[in-house]
């Protein structure tokens, strides 16, 4: 029976005449055979040895546990497996564990490969759909006419300018806001400045509060006017003087969250009270040394 396509074909079960085809067939079929043997060992706990002499007179072999032991057992007509020594059993257990890990790893990689193939098929399907819609600009470049080439080239160059601007904005969206937005956060903490009992403890708690809030920002969407606060609370007055607009604009925004901030502050105080005295002293000293340097940097 002659097939219409050149896909999978039934072949005659005789020795192949084409030498290179024979070599390729040997390589592929030997590989598949060893794969099946490996699966048999894993699934059914069998011991296997397969020996194949290649057309080039090399010898390929696969064995579990290994070729030599199985062949020796066969030649010597020994029906019992050599489980007489504890050392052998321990080695076999370890080997089985390694093989199991390798099998799991292989299954995982093959699963990922399957996912990538599905994605590839989906992308091909999308392309066929757009081709049916008549999107000629997606055809290979060699198939387009001169006018089409020049027209699409113009559109692409316009798009390139737009994307370049967008890409540069991505970079700027992080660095300047990190610096500019810090004062508004200080303003927020400044509001709470007079509502704490212990001034020394409160200063440090606010410091940690700012860190926690700053960390939360990174888990949410990036807003151009919010960023990480690098300065200590003692710099509040100076910053406010330099950027009054931000303080005025964002102060009301923090009033609704005032209770939440206070609650977090109490939690921090409790944790702080449970710390050792030595840590308190060290942390306080560290905190004390922070604002003057940042003030100098700001100037």
């Amino acid at each position: 029976m002659v097939k219409k396509s050149k896909g999978r074909q039934k072949i005659e079960m005789v020795k192949m005449k084409n030498e290179s085809n024979l070599q390729v067939t040997f390589s592929k079929r030997r590989s598949g055979l060893f794969k099946k043997a490996s699966e048999l060992c894993t699934l059914c706990g069998a011991e296997v040895a397969i020996v194949v002499f290649s057309p080039g007179r090399k010898v390929f072999s696969f064995g579990h546990p290994n070729v030599d032991s199985v062949i020796d057992r066969f030649i010597n007509n020994n029906p019992l497996p050599p489980h007489q020594h504890n050392n052998m059993q321990l080695r076999e257990t370890r080997r089985n564990s390694i093989v199991q890990d390798l099998n799991n790893h292989l299954t995982q990689v093959l699963s990922q490969l399957e996912t990538e193939k599905k994605k590839y098929d989906e992308l091909k399907k999308i392309r066929e759909k757009t081709k049916a819609l008549g999107n000629w600009w997606e055809d290979p470049v060699e198939e387009l006419a001169l006018s089409q080439l020049e027209g699409f080239k113009g559109n692409l160059e316009n798009l390139k300018k737009v994307v370049t601007v967008e890409a540069s904005r991505f970079f700027q969206a992080n660095v300047p806001n990190f610096y500019v937005g810090s004062s508004s956060n200080n303003a927020a903490f400044g509001i709470d400045d007079g509502s704490h009992i212990n001034p020394d403890m409160d200063l440090f708690s606010q410091r940690r509060m700012m860190d926690i809030n700053a960390f939360n920002y990174n888990q949410n969407q990036i807003h151009p006017n919010h960023a990480l606060p690098p300065f200590g609370n003692n710099a509040y007055g100076i910053n406010e003087g330099f950027v009054p607009e931000y303080n005025v604009n964002f102060r009301p925004e923090y009033n609704p969250n005032q209770n939440q901030i206070q609650n977090q502050n109490q939690v921090q105080i409790q944790i702080q009270n449970q710390s050792f005295k030595r840590e308190n002293i060290s942390e306080y000293e560290h905190h004390h040394g922070y604002p003057p340097q940042s003030r100098s940097d700001y100037y």
């Binding site: 020795k15 192949m16 024979l22 067939t25 069998a46 011991e47 040895a49 020996v51």
Partner: peptide, 13 residues
């Protein structure tokens, strides 16, 4: 058969 080579297999169950 296809490649005209010698081979053998031993399987212990």
């Amino acid at each position: 058969t296809l490649c005209g080579v010698q081979a053998c297999a031993l399987i212990y169950s």
